[in-house]
Nucleic acid binder design. Structure first.
Ligand SMILES: [Mn+2]
Ligand SMILES: [Mn+2]
Ligand SMILES: [Zn+2]
Ligand SMILES: [Zn+2]
Lengths: 138, 138
DNA sequence: CGCCCGCATTAGACGGAGTCTAAAGTCACA
DNA sequence: TGTGACTTTAGACTCCGTCTAATGCGGGCG
């Protein structure tokens, strides 16, 4: 994702300090941060950045397909910079920890035509739930 | 679900007009209503029922395993009285229509040990997304 | 290089969904 | 029927996210 800024510039994005900082926060680690967590980390690098700008920028990154929205819990959406390699999620029901997982097989193929009700099915999300080792040992 | 009230009484539930009405709203049709939709339908039968009671009762039904919470979109949770037969969901990305589906195969078996990170995995939710026939023809 | 237009940022108001509280009501057992 | 614990209620409150209108600034043009 380190050439993200280049790609964005290529798409006509005006480059600003705020956008750079949001991209930096998402870069590197494969995390699943909420918008307010992104904001908190962005503020550490650029104290005057506003919540609205973080929301705006995340929304744009999502539209551009550079970041995915993930709704694993029923609270705040999480933003996933791992948009390159398709994957699903494994969530700890106790502490909320999230792992990227790659199940074998193609769940799309497991939905027979008789179960499609005439829909054009284009995507599938799989969320595994369980208890992480940390929470299990506590 | 028609003997739901019996089961609940058996569990020591105090039976009230409000709880009866919420159970009736959920009974029968296999719908996926939001809490406010449940409230609206409950009000039609018992005008003075409050939003808080609908939320309380839905929460209790969920704890008892009689109703499932479904978070197919990123807005309000939906309440699913079809807790008897395990199933997944197919959602229209355009109008939000929701269908119950029964994929072949067991997605839990598709998650190799090497992808479990020491978690005890107990559950999996699969959400298919696409466009329904109505929206496709429009 | 510096101007200037239009895009970007900002603070704060606003909205929807859900939770909480404290006061009032009512179920059900004795 | 009386009683006490359980339920219900209105409305305040929180959290997450969106919107607005005023201000700021990036960067192409002259
Ligand atoms: Mn991920
Ligand atoms: Mn369902
Ligand atoms: Zn955990
Ligand atoms: Zn549709």
């Amino acid at each position: 994702m380190s050439d993200l800024l280049e790609r964005l510039r290529g798409r006509g994005w005006r480059m600003t300090a705020q956008r750079r900082v949001v991209a930096e926060v998402l870069d590197g680690e494969h995390v699943h941060l909420t918008a307010d967590e992104v904001h908190a980390r962005a503020v550490a690098k650029l104290p005057e950045i506003s919540r609205a700008t973080v929301y705006n920028t995340l929304g744009e990154l999502v539209s551009l397909g550079e970041v995915l929205e993930v709704a694993t819990d029923k609270r705040a959406k999480r933003y996933d910079p791992n948009a390159h390699r398709p994957h699903h999620h494994l969530v700890c029901a106790h502490c909320g920890a999230i792992k990227d997982v790659h199940p074998s097989g193609n769940p799309l193929a497991d939905l027979p035509d008789s179960e499609r009700f005439g829909f054009t099915v284009s995507d599938v999300e799989v969320t595994y739930r369980g208890v992480c080792p940390n929470c299990a040992s506590a």
